[in-house]
């Protein structure tokens, strides 16, 4: 019973946020500066999710060459810059992480 409220409530807020502007599309017009600002959205929002998850994987800031999350991210960045292929970046990054954590035991 409690779980139905939880899931129903989470659906209601998630879907409203996702649907609100789509429902009004055609009736609203954004000024050009706002459209330009929205072009920054994808990298900026993704980075706001990534940064804490790799620098504070255990809840506290861990800026050290022994942090496997940070090291494997560095490997992923370099791979992305060289190969420019998403699948390669993901696979190499995950292998690097697995190697550091379970191979070397960081």
């Amino acid at each position: 019973m409690n779980e139905s409220f939880l899931i129903g409530g989470m659906f209601a807020v998630t879907f409203s946020v996702r649907y609100l502007l789509f429902a009004m599309a055609g009736k609203i017009h954004f000024p050009s500066w706002l459209n330009k600002a929205l072009e920054f959205v994808p990298p900026v929002v993704l980075m706001a999710i990534i940064a804490p998850s790799i620098t504070m994987p255990k809840g506290e800031l861990w800026l050290s060459p022994l942090n496997p999350w940070l090291l494997a991210s560095l490997v992923a960045v370099i791979t992305a810059l060289i190969r420019k292929d998403l699948l390669t970046t993901i696979v190499v990054g995950m292998l690097a992480f697995a190697g550091l954590r379970f191979g070397i035991g960081l």
């Binding site: 999710i49 790799i54 970046t89």
Partner: peptide, 12 residues
């Protein structure tokens, strides 16, 4: 970490 590395590949 899979999510972080995916998002890194999307940002670059």
């Amino acid at each position: 970490f899979a999510m972080s590395v995916t998002f890194i590949g999307m940002v670059i």
